[in-house]
């Protein structure tokens, strides 16, 4: 497999602050890399260097085979960028945003027009085509931003915290759109503060903190280190929690624990079949249940495990 992004010892300093401190990683073409880290970890700075917006102070990066410093123009013609703070043009309507980019990319007028229509349709923005983005909802603005970054049919797409601030429905919609892109063969570099999002979209995850990569691997590999999904069961009033825990432990690889204060029984889900087995056991036991959910470790919990401390800059909502 060829690498779409190759980063080697990338460094960026702002004054005396080393925002990115020697990050190296490789993203194979057609895969999704999730850059996971808290606020201030250096995610945006990495993306901006890869998008040729700022120059690295050290190390090198190649995108689609071209050096981001020496061959900025070639890199620019192969990437799409959806910035953390949406980079749509608020001063002109949605359709004109897309048409303008088509024209800037030297598409003939007719092609640029058709593409703008097509992308608006695909991102369900046709009704908002003539409205200014400042009147859009957060989800619509993100979709327009994504559409705008796709006008040039990029090989590599950067999504910087694409769902931060979105409601769950818009978030799921955006996830589906990203999956759709990946299915078409686009390489995606995604930054996020949410473990759940990295798991949902990324083939591989790089965890960064204070400009350094502190862990990397597939979601499963990280989960093995961090502790993966947890099944949480709240049996009805009067149920024997210890008994439920015993039964659940028998069903899965892990050992169920009881949280008496909360009235919860928790079972770590180690293998893919564990959840199904646990649900079977619960059904067979006939115990009435008030609530049941699965819980993904939050970024805080991931950090607690990986670094023994919480994220450095401002705790994040998981």
């Amino acid at each position: 497999m060829t690498a779409a992004i190759e980063i080697d010892g990338l460094v960026k300093e702002f004054g005396r602050n080393r925002a990115v401190d020697g990050v190296s990683l490789t993203v194979p073409a057609g895969t999704v890399l999730g850059l996971l880290g808290p606020n201030g970890a250096g995610k945006t700075t990495i993306v901006r260097m890869l998008a040729t917006l700022i120059r690295p102070d050290g190390g090198r990066a190649r995108v689609a085979g071209h050096d981001v410093v020496e061959e900025a123009l070639q890199v620019r013609s192969r990437i799409g960028l959806t910035g953390q703070y949406a980079s749509v043009d608020e001063s002109i309507p949605g359709w004109d945003n897309l048409y303008m980019i088509g024209r800037l990319l030297r598409l003939p007028r007719r092609r640029a027009r058709a593409l703008a229509d097509e992308l608006l349709e695909r991102f369900r923005l046709t009704d908002a085509a003539r409205r200014l983005p400042r009147d859009y909802s957060g989800g619509m603005r993100r979709r327009l931003d994504l559409a705008a970054s796709l006008v040039g049919d990029p090989e590599v797409l950067y999504l910087d915290e694409p769902t931060t601030g979105l409601d769950p429905r818009s978030r799921n919609e955006l996830w589906d759109m990203v999956r759709d892109l990946v299915a078409r063969g686009t390489t995606v570099l995604l930054t996020t503060q949410y473990m759940e999002e990295a798991e949902a979209l990324a083939d591989r995850i790089a965890v960064i903190d204070r400009g350094r990569m502190i862990a990397g691997g597939t979601a499963a590999e990280l989960r093995a280190r961090v502790g993966g999904q947890m099944l949480r069961v709240r049996p009805g009033d009067g149920a024997d929690l210890a008994d439920v825990a015993r039964r659940l432990s028998a069903a899965g690889e892990g050992t169920a624990t009881v949280d008496h204060a909360e009235g919860l029984v928790c079972l770590p889900l180690a293998r893919p079949g564990d959840l199904t087995a646990a649900v079977h056991v619960l059904t067979d036991s006939g115990v009435a249940m008030d609530a049941l959910d699965t819980h993904t470790p939050s970024l805080d919990e991931v950090f607690l495990t990986l670094t023994g401390g919480v994220p450095t800059e401002g705790r994040t909502t998981g």
Binding site: L53, R76, L81, G83, S87, S91, I101, L104, L105
Partner: peptide
């Protein structure tokens, strides 16, 4: 002062545009 400059600068266009 708005994010749109990031978009322009990430496109393969003349700097002077």
């Amino acid at each position: 002062s708005t994010g749109v400059m990031d978009r322009f600068r990430s496109l393969p266009i003349a700097r002077s545009a």
